[in-house]
Design a binder for these strands. Structure first.
Lengths: 221, 221
DNA sequence: AAAAAAAATGACCGGGTAGTCATTTTTTTA
DNA sequence: TAAAAAAATGACTACCCGGTCATTTTTTTT
């Protein structure tokens, strides 16, 4: 999506630009995020951005792709078949997610912040795609657990899948509310969101796993 | 908060103004909502709004109060002590919430949309207050159920309370995603959000109650 | 070193917003 | 009906924004 001009850029400048916009979009809504402000901060001309990207939306799509690719490197290797049950698998996904955050705070929080951009119709499409994929993945997982008898099967697939999805998001919000995590502040300071909180985070993960386990696990076993 | 001038207004005009802004803020973020557009639509001068309210924030606070008061009329009467267990109580709260929506679509969706205005610092404070109150209420409920032995007590109060709170929000989102409910469309058409969906909604409520029940109920009984 | 290609620039355009306030219109009081 | 009080008005200010493009600067090629 970005132009050749952008790809040919000095890697240092390229990263500086990417990071500055990741930071902006990680803190603000799509509509609130200001290209003018960021270029002022970067000390480059606004016109340049429009030679690099196809408008604000093109820039945003590029950042989405970039951030997603980085996250995939951390998470794609985690396979359900390598774990005895769903919950150890789920926990490992979270552990790797934390590592992703520790090493790529901007990408991590950009992705977390995606859902706040729902109000802009242009971005809503992108988000809907993300959502579809995520829900499809959860649905497939749940189906598998039901098939092998680990999950109770008296609930619609959609409900169980959405429930897990929502619970996994709730963990992050729990950290914000009860552990005093403030992503925006930390991103503004260019710090990792979960830095120094790994242990506490995993404790909370275990609490929510306990809840999900009770809610979904087959009581016959 | 509104001026005397506003309170002395012809009730019809007063309602027209209130409704128009409820509708705007129900569909848009605080920052996205445009006073200019609404007054154009209403056919009144922009200056009037600034004689009625203390700026955009004052207007917003007035709408919050108004909507909350209406909702309270529906929900305040539901007492835990009138129900044999938490879940019938919870279900009744939802039933009354649906009635509130059917009869007051604008107020209902204004309140639902509140959380989308988090990005504006001025409104964030207001939202934080709402949140504190809501969580305190859930925490108290959970404590009570743990005390009387209906809920398991091996989880932190905060976690259990937040879990219920989040699950109750998930029900609305479930409706949007899987039942095709689109609040913004319906509000724009001045229709109730849940109109014609009461039955389906309560089915979904029951599904989430089942999940929460498994998750939280004391297994010893 | 000269010519050609590539990249960077920033003034400018059209559009939007919240909020102000001197003036006009309407209503109430006397 | 005339004077006073209350309410409504909308042009105006000061500020944003995304996006454009003719011009200038830099880099590459010849």
């Amino acid at each position: 999506m970005p132009s050749e001009t952008f790809n040919n850029l000095n890697p240092v400048k390229k990263k500086a630009i990417t990071d500055a916009f990741l930071r902006e979009f990680a803190i603000k809504t799509y509509d609130e995020a200001s290209i003018s402000k960021v270029v002022r901060q970067l000390g480059i001309a606004k016109g340049s951005i429009y030679q690099y990207f196809d408008g604000k939306l093109g820039l945003f799509l590029y950042l989405s792709d970039a951030a997603t690719q980085v996250k995939m490197k951390y998470v794609a290797g985690v396979q359900r078949s390598d774990f005895p049950d769903y919950w150890t698998f789920f926990r490992k996904l979270y552990e790797d997610g934390i590592n992703f955050d520790l090493e790529n705070p901007l990408e991590s929080h950009f992705l977390h912040n995606l859902r706040n951009s729902l109000n802009s119709p242009s971005v809503a499409d992108l988000y809907a795609k993300f959502m579809d994929q995520t829900l499809a993945a959860f649905r497939q997982m749940v189906k598998h657990e039901m098939d092998i008898g680990l999950f109770r099967s008296d609930l619609p697939l959609d409900t169980a899948a959405f429930f897990i999805y929502k619970s996994s998001l709730a963990i992050y919000e729990h950290m914000e509310i009860f552990v005093g995590l403030s992503p925006k502040e930390r991103i503004a300071q260019n710090r990792s969101v979960f830095d120094g909180m790994t242990e506490k985070m995993l404790q909370v993960v275990d609490q929510y796993i306990a809840l999900m386990k009770n809610a979904l696990e087959n009581p016959n076993l």
